[in-house]
């Protein structure tokens, strides 16, 4: 079952993409959604507030999604936060690299609401189930 009270941080340099992801999340039923423009912005938000899930793009200026993932996993206070990559970077080496640094799941753009919902469910099922 999805916990609709989850606080989610959407990270993407394109304001339109953030809005699309937010809209889809709202349709799924999430209402506690915050956003950041790049990895740097995301990190400072994550350090100020408690978030339950990060949904991040890969290609961003200043700090990429992969660097954000590395930084989250390297930070003792943040390393438990699940990270879902939503990105056009769908080459095998990118996926493998994200897995290597502890991504929780990976969605390829363009995606549907169903895919996003399914991936979020998977992340939290996996957490509660073991």
């Amino acid at each position: 079952m999805l916990d609709l009270k989850l606080k989610i941080l959407v990270v993407d340099d394109f304001s339109t993409m953030r809005r699309i992801v937010k809209n889809i999340l709202r349709q799924i039923g999430y209402s506690n959604i915050d956003e950041a423009e790049d990895g740097n912005g995301a990190l400072s938000k994550l350090r100020q507030d408690k978030y339950d899930l990060v949904i991040s793009d890969w290609n961003m200026p200043n700090m990429t999604g992969l660097d954000l993932l590395k930084a989250i996993r390297a930070d003792g206070n943040l390393n438990g936060i699940p990270v879902l990559m939503v990105t056009a970077e769908s080459k095998k080496e990118n996926v493998v690299e994200a897995i290597k640094y502890g991504v929780n799941n990976y969605v390829v753009k363009p995606f549907t609401a169903d895919i996003l919902k399914n991936k979020i469910e998977k992340i939290f099922d996996g957490k509660s189930g073991g």
């Binding site: 056009a88 769908s90 080459k91 095998k92 996926v95 493998v96 897995i99 799941n105 990976y106 969605v107 390829v108 995606f111 895919i115």
Partner: peptide
């Protein structure tokens, strides 16, 4: 064309 689609990524995952 050269990018993987979601199914391929899922198989990889």
């Amino acid at each position: 064309k050269s990018a993987l689609n979601q199914n391929v990524v899922d198989n990889l995952l």
